[in-house]
């Protein structure tokens, strides 16, 4: 229990103190995960839409694969991205390894299947409701996907948030491809891992509480937004 009490004190001190190196870590964390989710969403929504609206050979296999990849171990994703971005790898010339860019790529790999699989479900349900009307108006498939994404934006926000939660809480992948370099690729989770390995459990737990707090703020905003939208748009 002394650790927990210490952790609370640490968390409060961290927030109250606004320590510049902590601010740096928090900003980088948000920046990396936000970019990764943005990128993943840009890939996943059209992908989910295509899987919801088009019928083609291999579609079912792709859906199963996506659902399975939702549980992709971060370390595996990290290792794959590491091998790709390593100087000896296919994309080594880009020099992205051990940069925030590499971390964004790794998180993107983790998040895309989640957003795609969840949005496919949402869009498929919407399509059942809208299909005849949109076809009657003469909307093509691509346009229909765009329309459904906009119509389902509040439900899709939940899918995107699930992805964001995964991205921001993940440590295995960003540790491998980012290298946890101080002031450069150190994010909340890798900092927590580092403090744990230094034996500073209270500080690690304090950082963890801060991370949870951030997660709560993001989810609460989304929840309120969704509730508001329900009242307003019906």
């Amino acid at each position: 229990m002394t650790e927990l009490r210490g952790a609370f004190a640490q968390a409060l001190a961290l927030i109250g103190g606004a320590d510049p190196s902590l601010v740096e870590i928090v900003l980088l964390t948000v920046q990396v995960s936000f970019s990764a989710v943005l990128l993943a969403t840009a890939i996943a929504l059209p992908l989910g839409g295509a899987l919801a609206l088009y019928r083609f050979p291999g579609r079912r296999g792709l859906v199963v694969l996506l659902n399975a990849l939702m549980g992709l171990p971060p370390v595996v994703a990290g290792l794959a991205v590491y091998l790709l971005l390593s100087r000896s790898g296919a994309l080594g010339a880009w020099g992205l390894l051990f940069t925030p860019g590499a971390m964004i790529a790794a998180q993107c790999v983790l998040v895309t299947p989640i957003v795609a699989a969840l949005s496919r479900q949402v869009l498929e349900d919407l399509w059942a409701e809208y299909a005849e009307q949109l076809r009657s108006l003469g909307a093509g498939r691509a346009r229909a996907i765009a329309t459904l994404v906009w119509e389902g934006r509040h439900a899709l926000l939940t899918a995107v948030l699930a992805g964001f939660g995964r991205a921001i809480a993940e440590v295995g992948a960003v540790l491998i491809v980012g290298g946890n370099i101080a002031h450069h690729t150190r994010v909340m989770t890798t900092a927590i891992a580092l403090e744990t390995s230094k034996g500073d459990l209270a500080l690690a737990l304090g950082l963890g509480m801060l991370l949870i707090g951030m997660s709560i703020v993001v989810n609460a905003s989304a929840y309120l937004l969704k509730e508001y939208a329900q009242v307003r748009y019906g």
Partner: peptide, 24 residues
Amino acid sequence: AMVFQRPVLLRRSALANVVYALAV
């Protein structure tokens, strides 16, 4: 054009619903 038994309207204003159809 067709009007269905249960209208399928988009989550936007009445005017925007008509504008959407014109855009399509």
